[in-house]
Every structure is written in structure tokens, then in C-alpha cells.
Simulated scan of single mutants.
Amino acid sequence: MQYYEDLKVGDTQEFGEYHVTGEEIVEFAEQYDPQPFHVDEEAAEESAFGELVASGWHTASMCMRLLVDGPLSEQASMGARGVDELRWKKPVKPGDTLSARTEVLDKRVSESDPRRGYVDVRFEGRNQHDEVVVSWISLAMIERRSAGE
């Protein structure tokens, strides 16, 4: 298990692989973001994207899955206080393969609860061409091994 004390500012990690299908793009969008360029291939061709693309929320969700299956499965994660600077940088299309990269930007012990540390982590989701498709800064809370360390 990786605790707050194990993380260092500047640490980076690359991980995950997620293959995106047109069917799941439509299924997610029909339920949560039913804009024409997410649910209808013909309408998508007439859109600014020129083809079916994933909802940004779907992209963030797929990348969250990479995080949960990757580094969060090995961390004493206590959740997050939110995200800053969420950006959808490139559309995700059927057939894309997503992977992820993280970098620890900052860390500090919580003043209100010394059992947890706050760790700010830049997240980047990338496609198979190594292009950043989504990014954010996670305001993570990580359990401390000991409040006295």
C-alpha cells in the first residue's frame, strides 16, 4: 500500500489501456449527454467534429476507470476534494485507445485532520497518438502512515 509519505513532488506514472467503442459512446451519451454528435452518426457528420465523438464526461469517466484500476488500487486513497482545471483537449472517437499519465504537483498535511495528506496530482488522458485528450488536477486525499511522521 502506498501512503502519503511515499509520494514525492515530481513523481510521474504512466499506466492503463482502454479501447473505446462507438457502441459505448452512444450508450453513455443516450443516458447522460444526448447531444446529436454523441448519439447519431449522421448528425455527427454534420457537426463541427465531422464524426461521432465521446462526451467529455464519458472521456473523464473512462480515464477515472484507468485511475481506479491503476495507481488508486495501490494507494491509501481517501477520495478527493475535487478537481481543478478540467479540460477536454481533443475529441475521443470510436477505435481510440486511451492511456494515462500522472504527476505529483504538490503535497501537504491536512491542518484539520493530521491523519490525511492533501496531494495535488496532474492527470492527463492520452490517445494512441500520445495526444492529450483530457486533463485535470486532482485534489486527492491520501492516508498518512502515521500522523506523527
Rank of each mutant, 00 (worst) to 15 (best):
N127Y: 00
T59R: 00
G82K: 03
V9Y: 07
E41Q: 12
V119M: 06
G10W: 10
S61T: 13
Y18R: 15
Q2P: 01
D69E: 15
G50P: 10
V104W: 05
S146I: 04
E131H: 13
E46F: 02
F49A: 02
V109N: 06
D120S: 14
E74N: 15
G125F: 12
E5S: 09
D6E: 11
Y18A: 07
Q75D: 00
H38Q: 01
E27P: 03
G95C: 09
E149C: 08
K8F: 06
S138D: 15
G10K: 08
D6G: 13
D130N: 15
V26I: 12
Y4T: 09
A60Q: 01
G10C: 12
E85K: 15
Q128F: 02
V83I: 14
K107P: 08
Y118C: 10
Y32V: 08
P34S: 09
E5Q: 14
C63Q: 13
A100N: 02
K107E: 10
E124V: 04
D84N: 13
P34M: 07
R65F: 08
H58A: 06
V83A: 09
D33R: 02
E45R: 03
A44N: 04
E46D: 12
D130S: 13
T21R: 00
N127V: 00
V26K: 02
R144I: 10
V134L: 05
E24T: 04
W57D: 03
V20I: 14
V92N: 04
Y32A: 05
D130W: 11
Q13S: 11
F37T: 06
E51A: 03
E111H: 12
D11T: 12
S55L: 01
I137H: 06
V68H: 05
